[in-house]
Design a protein around this nucleic acid. Structure first.
Lengths: 103, 103
DNA sequence: TCATAATATAACTATATAATTATATGGTCA
DNA sequence: TGACCATATAATTATATAGTTATATTATGA
């Protein structure tokens, strides 16, 4: 793997390394939502959500569809959930190991 | 998924979001290495490598074994390579889509 | 066309963190 | 014990970025 490839991969992980962005992706799991809906669902400010959405879009993780004066966002790369599942599984195993140290 | 869970998952992605850490993991793919070997392999400074290794260790991604006055590090969670593969595949598909826009 | 609603962008601030330099710790062997 | 080697930690600096406030853009409907 080349230096450049590692940079690109690291950049993708960075996009996923923010709780609010994960929260947005999580909320989109059941289907597309408008920016306003995401603002309500997350409790974050509208500019904040817009910015996160543009970052997610830059990484191809969400798609944007405009209808009237509303923008609908949806999951663009379902593999993100696969990634989260693997990470969660890893965290679980790690806890188990740490626990077993005390048994 | 709870707020707290999202925080933990985001934190894990953050650990993987640095090119030098990915480089270290990549170098460990063929087996354990000492800090010195990793310094040589990566071209980074010794304190820098030590710090990255401690971050990786904190996330359970590498294991440490001491022998004499040398520390041997090895992959602690093989699933990281699975994660990278999925991300790489995602990047490839994204390029394909962007390319097809011009055909 | 004007007022309004939804979203996006810009400028700014505060915080997190990667890398460097200097120093400390811990082990080995004479 | 004392010199040396490998690794770890501390302090510092520079940069990246999340969030806020204010403003711009774009679309709708009276």
């Amino acid at each position: 793997m080349s230096e450049q490839q590692l940079d690109v991969v690291a950049q993708r992980f960075r996009v996923l390394s923010d709780p609010m962005r994960l929260k947005i992706l999580h909320n989109l799991r059941d289907g597309e939502l408008t920016v306003g809906s995401l603002v309500n669902a997350t409790g974050a400010s509208q500019p904040n959500i817009s910015k996160h959405l543009s970052i997610l879009r830059g990484a191809g993780l969400v798609n944007r569809r405009q209808d009237g004066n509303m923008a609908y966002f949806s999951i663009g790369a379902p593999f993100v959930f696969q990634l989260c599942d693997i990470v969660c599984e890893g965290i679980r195993k790690e806890f188990e190991q740490k626990q077993s140290t005390f048994r």
